[in-house]
Write a protein that binds this DNA or RNA. Structure first.
Length: 420
DNA sequence: TCTGGGGTCCTAGGACCC
DNA sequence: TCTGGGGTCCTAGGACCC
């Protein structure tokens, strides 16, 4: 059995945790640059505001006082997330953090009769200690636990905890779940299935395996098995991530290679610093620069350039240099770039770095590693006091619009500097 | 005017090998 | 003009998740 703990409307709940006057009101939280809606309170959902709606489409509701809006404050959300996760960790042998607001509780070996009670306690405790409302779904597989958590959220009578533990309950739950709401069935597959007469999860389960495999491939078969109570989704919890990406959309479009280089240097430096924080190193450095896909009147171009390092690295000078080389490979003048980023992959543990046979730069690399360590200690306050000359002056987050940011209640003075 | 950011996995097809 | 068969590995792109 698995239990999935899922925070309700997480970003909105974080804002409310420290601004209780927002309780019961329609609230939305916006993405970076105040671009679009990424979290909605139940009241905002009831008003028909959809996930991903561009902010300008709901701005008049804000101006009329019908909707409250907040810029996203990831430092706050990360902080509250780790508090929630630590409470969950304390209650069961192991948890698998799935996202900033969700974790699977691995409860095998525990007394099953005590699990629902334990989960009710957790819901109460997390609400009381952090202010965050949580729903928990319990079932035989991860996909069914997801389903159960939806019910826990949707129906007040469950008081935040829903258990699917008999074939009858499972069939009932499947019959009440639209096929598009299944974990693993996305916005492309759902209409395809509906056209074949598959409207609910129960319809899907009743199709033969061969049909599922032909139509939805191996991932579909896994979902199909999971819905029947057979474990098929692999543990996603691994030692280290396989890739790390830092990217941003720009407030304005950028054509100039110099200006683009400044941003790409920032992204690369962030990736290098994330790698070091996780004691990792990467072989592959990719830079991408995209034009604005919403502007069909402009020429479009979505290139990625990749550099392979002979020796895995996590040092800022080397990774910035590689990212800039990758940018030079792909950059073409005459395009208006709206978004760019750097991805590092082929990641290994920093302790497992192997020298390359024809590598004559080891001395240089040692020096760059030393420089990076100095950068980390000087920059640990959160301010980018030491940076490469190819990076932008000022703070990394400069130029990101956050017109509706709430106070920095839970975080230190250094975060204040970061934002202001 | 204004449309996020960070991940995972799978598959098809190309490059390359003998 | 005619042009095998069987592998592996890598990459780009698509689908999915939050």
């Amino acid at each position: 059995m698995y239990a999935l703990a899922d925070c309700n409307n997480f970003f909105v709940s974080c804002e409310r945790a420290l601004q209780p006057q927002l309780e019961g009101k329609p609230v939305v939280v916006l993405s970076n640059n105040d671009g679009c809606v990424v979290a909605r309170s139940n009241e905002a959902k009831a008003m028909g505001i959809k996930m991903g709606t561009p902010f300008f489409k709901v701005k008049d509701l804000v101006d009329k006082g019908l909707l409250t809006v907040r810029s996203s404050n990831y430092t706050l959300y990360g902080d509250l997330s780790s508090r929630v996760m630590s409470i969950l960790s304390g209650a069961v042998p192991r948890i698998e953090v799935y996202s900033i607001d969700e974790a699977f509780l691995i409860i095998e070996g525990m007394d099953m009769t005590k699990i629902p009670g334990l989960c009710h306690d957790l819901v109460f405790k997390i609400r009381k200690w952090t202010g965050i409302p949580v729903s928990i779904g319990i079932a035989e597989t991860k996909t069914l636990a997801k389903l159960a958590s939806h019910f826990a959220k949707k129906y007040k009578g469950y008081h935040g905890v829903c258990v699917i533990d008999t074939p009858e309950k499972r069939e009932k739950a499947l019959s009440l779940t639209p096929v598009g709401d299944i974990w693993g069935v996305g916005f492309r597959m759902a209409p395809k299935l509906e056209k074949c007469g598959i409207l609910t999860a129960l319809d899907l389960v009743r199709r033969p395996k061969s049909w599922i495999e032909k139509t939805m491939s191996i991932t579909g078969v896994r979902t199909w098995m999971e819905l029947q109570g057979i474990d098929a989704v692999a543990d996603q919890d691994r030692e280290r991530r396989q890739s790390i990406c830092t990217s941003r959309s720009f407030a304005d479009m950028i054509s100039d290679e110099k200006e683009l280089s400044l941003r790409v240097s920032d992204f690369a430096a962030m990736c290098a610093s994330k790698l070091r924080r996780e004691h990792s190193a990467a072989y592959k450095i990719s830079t991408f620069a995209w034009t604005n896909s919403f502007r069909q009147d402009l020429a479009q171009y979505y290139p990625t350039g990749t550099i392979h390092l002979p020796v895995a690295s996590s040092n800022t000078p080397e990774i910035v240099q590689a990212a800039l080389r990758a940018l030079r490979m792909i950059y073409k003048p005459g395009f208006q770039y709206k978004r760019a980023g750097v991805t590092v992959s082929d990641i290994i543990d920093a302790g497992d770095i192997q020298a390359a046979l024809f590598d004559f730069d080891q001395n240089l690399r040692d020096k760059q590693d030393a420089i990076s360590r100095v950068m980390d200690s000087v920059n640990s306050s959160g301010r980018q006091l030491l940076r490469m000359a190819t990076q932008r002056p000022g703070h990394y987050a400069d130029g990101i619009r956050r017109d509706y940011c709430s106070g920095l209640y839970s975080t230190s003075w250094t975060d204040l500097i970061k934002v202001h």
